[in-house]
């Protein structure tokens, strides 16, 4: 029983031995914390639909920028003798783009080539020409510019109005929040369709009127998301710390809290783009679009719709571009949501 009084401090240094000194304390690389944006990028790139959408948007933007200057025509130049010509593309005649179209007269179907009949040898309308002899290719890309322009406006409105409205309402809470939320709720309970129609009737149709109409209704979904996120974040410690250090409310809202919800903001903005493009196309179809000779995709479709059984190519190109534009933005928005906010359910 000597060990009881054993003095451990008197042990020589070489009596000790290091254990587990090499490999056992390894760094966990599987679950290492990763940069949020790098992570999101990986998730986004894995999404085939989103990549497809991104490429389509790039192609459409390319043509919207350069398309109108690829042809000798402008969007308003008319050559009345060259009306109703079917698409003809040099080098692609064998694919069917040779300017022939099938006309149906009662039971008889006959092939007509407007170029040969009119004697236009060196004339090419890539997407055909419309009833007034204007080049559809130029007009389609000119119209796409307007749709993209409206997309940018939608984003700006979302950020300027929706985001600030939601953040401010959520941060201050109390009476201000109650009043702001009631206003938004009442505005939201009147259908968009009605508000937009009435606004445009009062303001007379045009790009300006469409933008005002979007301003009145487009920001509500964004403000809701911003407010919900704000309610979640404003009780957290870093906000309290900021407050204690004397930061102004505006600084806390826009510098401290906003960067934390940037993912949701980007996703919501992407969703509001197809919505805005759709609103414009819808208004054009109802007859509240951009006045001639300007053209948006919506007005092109609603004009060509009048004779879409006899000259289907006139409606085909704007319809396809619009469809791809809407689809691509939706796919990218879906991809961004899954990438930036993986916890959120796929709804």
């Amino acid at each position: 029983m000597k060990a009881e009084n054993f003095d451990y401090s008197k042990l020589p240094a070489d009596a000790f031995e290091l254990t587990n000194n090499d490999t056992s304390a390894h760094v966990d690389r599987n679950f290492a914390s990763q940069n949020y944006w790098k992570d999101a990028l990986v998730r986004f790139l894995r999404n085939k639909g989103a990549i497809f959408g991104l490429i389509m948007i790039a192609i459409i933007i390319f043509f919207a920028v350069f398309g109108p200057s690829m042809t000798p025509y402008t969007y308003e130049s008319q050559i009345i003798e060259q009306q109703n010509l079917a698409p003809r593309i040099p080098g692609l005649e064998w694919l069917g783009f040779d300017g022939t179209e099938t006309m149906r007269l009662g039971e008889v179907e006959l092939e007509v080539n407007g170029y040969e009949r009119g004697g236009f040898t060196d004339v090419y309308y890539w997407f055909g020409s419309d009833t007034l002899g204007r080049d559809i290719f130029t007009r389609v890309w000119e119209g796409t510019r307007i749709s993209l322009y409206i997309a940018i406006v939608a984003v700006v409105i979302d950020i300027l109005f929706g985001l600030s409205y939601g953040l401010i309402s959520g941060y201050f809470g109390g009476k201000l929040d109650a009043v702001m939320q009631r206003c938004a709720e009442i505005l939201n309970s009147i259908p968009n369709l009605v508000i937009v129609t009435l606004m445009i009737l009062v303001l007379s149709p045009g790009l300006g009127a469409i933008i005002v109409a979007l301003m009145i209704t487009g920001w509500i979904p964004m403000s809701r998301i911003a407010r919900a996120q704000m309610l979640k974040l404003k009780e957290q410690e870093f906000v309290l710390a900021s407050k204690t250090l004397g930061a102004s409310p505006m600084r806390i809202i826009f510098k401290e809290i906003m960067p934390n919800i940037i993912g949701q903001i980007i996703t919501q903005t992407m969703f509001s783009i197809p919505h805005a493009i759709f609103t414009e196309a819808f208004l054009a179809f109802v007859g509240l679009g951009i006045p001639a000779p300007m053209a948006s995709l919506g007005t092109l479709i609603s004009d060509a719709y009048k004779n879409f059984t006899t000259h289907p190519y006139m409606i085909l190109s704007p319809l396809i571009v619009l469809a791809f534009l809407m689809l691509s933005f939706n796919l990218v928005a879906d991809g961004l949501r899954d990438a930036l906010d993986p916890k959120q359910k796929d709804m």
Partner: peptide
């Protein structure tokens, strides 16, 4: 379902 959600109904109608 992606097509149906993204495309305006008049595309289908036409």
């Amino acid at each position: 379902s992606v097509l149906g959600v993204s495309l305006p109904s008049y595309v289908f109608a036409l």
